[in-house]
Simulated assay, not measured.
Amino acid sequence: MTRILAVDDSPSMRDMVRIALTSAGFDVTSASDGQEALDLARQSGFDLVLSDVNMPVMDGIQLIRALRAESAYRHTPILMLTTEAGPDRKKEGKDAGATGWIVKPFDPAQLVATMHRVLR
């Protein structure tokens, strides 16, 4: 089963992502900020990381950089799921190593389709 790490400081957003992805057959682990996600990623392997950008403790861009520094996550798809849609922020994410960018609010079916496309 494909393991996804979903990171967002909003409990309701984590729930929406978890419901959308588990109903599509993914195994989803949630984290509330980048540091918690990094700790979980170091303890257990994930096939894809889906993260918000703006979070306390460690934001999504810092998380990408930290994950890309880990040999186990150099080539793992990392998608940003955020309200941030500006070209400068997207470039910052891409430069840090983000695989893609999804803007909130998201359509659950489109999210699932994106997961399948990126995981091929």
Rank of each mutant, 00 (worst) to 15 (best):
T2Y: 04
R3M: 10
I4Q: 03
I4T: 03
A6S: 13
D8F: 00
S12R: 11
M13H: 11
D15H: 13
V17G: 09
R18S: 10
R18I: 05
I19K: 10
A20Y: 14
L21N: 00
L21A: 00
G25V: 09
F26M: 08
D27L: 05
V28W: 09
V28L: 06
T29Y: 06
A31S: 03
S32A: 11
S32G: 14
Q35G: 03
Q35T: 01
L38R: 00
L38H: 00
D39N: 12
D39E: 13
D39I: 10
R42Y: 04
S44V: 12
G45A: 14
L48I: 05
L48G: 02
L48R: 00
L50R: 02
V53Y: 01
M55S: 08
M55N: 11
M55P: 13
M55I: 08
M55G: 12
P56C: 06
P56N: 04
V57A: 09
M58Q: 05
D59K: 00
D59Q: 02
D59R: 01
G60D: 01
I64N: 03
R65N: 12
L67S: 05
L67K: 06
R68L: 08
A69Q: 13
S71R: 11
A72Q: 09
A72F: 06
A72V: 07
Y73F: 11
R74T: 04
L79S: 05
L79C: 10
L79I: 14
M80T: 08
T83C: 12
T83W: 12
E84C: 08
A85S: 15
A85V: 11
G86D: 11
D88Q: 15
D88L: 14
D88I: 06
D88N: 12
R89Y: 15
R89T: 14
K90Y: 06
K91V: 05
G93L: 10
D95V: 09
A98F: 09
W101K: 07
V103Y: 01
K104E: 03
D107C: 02
A109P: 06
Q110H: 04
Q110Y: 04
L111R: 01
V112W: 15
A113V: 11
T114R: 15
R117E: 07
V118T: 13
L119R: 04
R120L: 15
